[in-house]
């Protein structure tokens, strides 16, 4: 009905508003969802543990390529000893949380949206309501909690794998001294400003990505095209939201 271009902005705003309201509803359902704690555990398994392989593989490669590039670039300034440091800082502050969130949106976010969307399309959510089970507490909140818990853990695993990858390239392959690699890293990387801030970022990304995924699934048009469209939107909006939020958080955290 409102296909005129002037109303596009209004539609977008309405979506954001609806998403915000949905967040409040989900947060309100979190205490009730603790009754279905098993379901939360199951979701952490699906969302987190099942993403481990892709996260670990990507982490290894990202670390390796960072090591390769930085060693090469820093050697030009005679500072190849700092390779490990720069790799670690880049990972902990930016790449770890951001890349993990993007992978997470593609791997777990889409499956959350498709799953909930199909539940909507086949009346399973309505069936739960009729059995006096609140789908917000049984379906949405456990996935939300799972995302918030799993993404930081995944980001840590990603970072650890990336450090190992960088170490393998710089030390084992390019011949940088192992002691130099580690000591420079430990001298310049700070637990609070680097590691912990990165963890906070990925907590926020986890919340945003799963919120968008759950919201899109919950509001799917009950058709096959509706589910397909919702899944695509999850990836697009999660990625944009992650990168935008990353900028904001970087500006305020450091």
């Amino acid at each position: 009905m409102s296909a005129r271009p002037t109303s596009r902005l209004g539609d977008a705003l309405a979506q954001v508003g609806a998403c915000g309201l949905f967040l409040l509803q989900v947060l309100g359902a979190v205490p009730k969802s603790l009754r279905h704690f098993r379901e939360t555990i199951r979701q952490i398994w699906f969302v987190g543990a099942m993403s481990l392989v892709i996260i670990m593989t990507c982490g290894l490669f990202v670390g390796a390529v960072l090591g390769l590039q930085l060693y090469d670039v820093l050697s030009r300034f005679g500072a190849s000893a700092m390779s490990g440091t720069v790799v670690a800082l880049a990972l902990y502050r930016e790449l770890g949380p951001v890349v993990t969130a993007l992978l997470f949106a593609g791997r777990a976010g889409t499956s959350i949206t498709a799953e909930i969307g199909l539940m909507r399309a086949t009346d399973q959510l309505a069936a739960m309501e009729m059995m006096a089970v609140d789908p917000l507490a049984y379906v949405a909140a456990p996935r939300f909690i799972a995302g918030v818990v799993a993404l930081p853990l995944l980001a840590c695993v990603f970072n650890a794998m990336a450090i190992l990858g960088a170490h393998a390239v710089c030390v084992s392959w390019l011949g940088l001294d192992g002691g130099t690699f580690w000591s420079n890293m430990t001298a310049s990387v700070d637990v609070w400003t680097d590691v912990v801030n990165g963890v906070w970022k990925s907590v926020a990304f986890g919340a945003v990505c799963t919120l968008i995924a759950t919201f899109n699934g919950y509001t799917t048009a009950p058709t096959s095209e509706g589910v397909a469209y919702a899944t695509t939107r999850t990836v697009v909006f999660s990625s944009i939201a992650t990168l935008a939020l990353d900028f904001v958080m970087t500006a305020f955290l450091t």
Binding site: W45, G48, L52, A88, P152, L153, L154, W182, T186, A187
Partner: peptide, 24 residues
């Protein structure tokens, strides 16, 4: 499995925090 996953995550965090930062 979920328990193991959470343990792995925290182990990774502990590793990052203690072995690659000034905490070391």
């Amino acid at each position: 499995g979920t328990g193991l996953f959470i343990l792995l995550g925290f182990a990774a965090l502990a590793y990052l925090a203690t072995q690659t930062t000034s905490v070391a």
